[in-house]
Design a protein around this nucleic acid. Structure first.
Lengths: 186, 186
DNA sequence: ATATATTATTGGACGCAGTCTAATAATTAA
DNA sequence: TTAATTATTAGACTGCGTCCAATAATATAT
């Protein structure tokens, strides 16, 4: 593990994100330009795009980590001898979520509404989740493709709506598991 | 009903849409600029934005009409003495859909994938549908908000996945009702 | 006929996102 | 000291969406 060759990095995703969220608070997402974010963090616009492929990617950084954790949890389950039902795994994952580690983006998900690129990137996350669920169901159950896709889509939609409900509940929200189980059994 | 005052219109949504879809076929959605669409139809870029608030709005013109019809169908049902369950109304609406009147945008929904603004505008349609369903459920059933939202979201997701499955089935797809009912009862 | 009001179309400018390229800066290795 | 390597940067470009002022085409009033 030698010292890396070449000019060392000064910028980082974290530095840029910090500057961005501060600006988003004051001027909103649309009211904040990439130029301003980069300048606020002490870098140039070009550098911003060395770290994020778009303004929206920055927004989802923490949320993507959460989604990744969920995906790995499901993949681990698939490797088990007898993988449990999707809903059970989701509920267990949900029970480990604590109210104080909600990604900034999710806590401020209402920022989505006015910005096309945020809606699009949020939708891409939902679609990605849906693919993960569909894959899990395909491995663990047998049914025709259309019913399988419908179940995956339904699960995704319910999960998202439970998350939003949980966030909307504010600081007194309590445990997420309660919200998810309430939404899953209908 | 006198002749309208002022300079008469030459342009129309239909003319612009026709030109746009032709270009989309050849160069794709992203590869087609608003400038090109307007020029192809014989107008200027500025005129395009007199008729559509964005390139994506043009894409959804026919689909929006379909969604509107569904919404009106549900609103009519709400005014009935004894509105039926949401699923029943949807199935009846679905049975009236014929394979040869699928909006161009839906038939070519794969164009969505590469274009952020299309994804965003598509997601907005889904969110709008979801609101309609949530409203319907709120009027016709009694349950807590979170379960209600979850059911609406689930219905929306299932409807969308059924539509996509139906379209993917190609010309031999047959009746949509079959797809929807297969997706709804899971 | 001519002038006026009204509406449609247009050109041109702007700011911002995202892409690209070439230049420069900071470091390690030779 | 020089070369190789990587980070940062400036600057140009295209396209979207917004805006405004200019012009064109029509109806109506005088």
């Amino acid at each position: 593990m030698r010292a890396p060759v070449g000019r060392p990095r000064r910028a980082s995703r974290e530095l840029l994100q910090e500057a961005a969220f501060e600006l988003f608070q004051h001027r909103g997402y649309r009211g904040t330009s990439v130029e301003q974010i980069a300048k606020m963090a002490g870098f140039s616009r070009a550098t911003f795009f060395n770290f994020f492929s778009s303004k929206a990617e920055l927004f989802w950084l923490e949320t993507d980590a959460l989604i990744l954790a969920l995906r790995e949890c499901l993949e681990g389950e698939l490797k088990a001898d007898n993988p449990r039902a999707l809903h059970r795994v989701l509920l267990e994952f949900a029970s480990k979520l604590s109210s104080d580690q909600i990604p900034w983006a999710l806590q401020n998900y209402r920022l989505l509404e006015a910005a096309d690129d945020l809606i699009a990137s949020g939708a891409s996350r939902a679609i990605g989740l849906n693919r993960v669920f569909a894959h899990y169901l395909a491995q663990t159950t047998q049914s025709d493709l259309i019913a399988l896709n419908a179940r995956a889509a339904s699960t995704t939609a319910i999960l998202v709506s439970a998350v939003l409900g949980w966030i909307d509940a504010g600081v007194t929200r309590g445990d997420f598991g309660k919200y998810l189980s309430g939404a899953l059994i209908h």
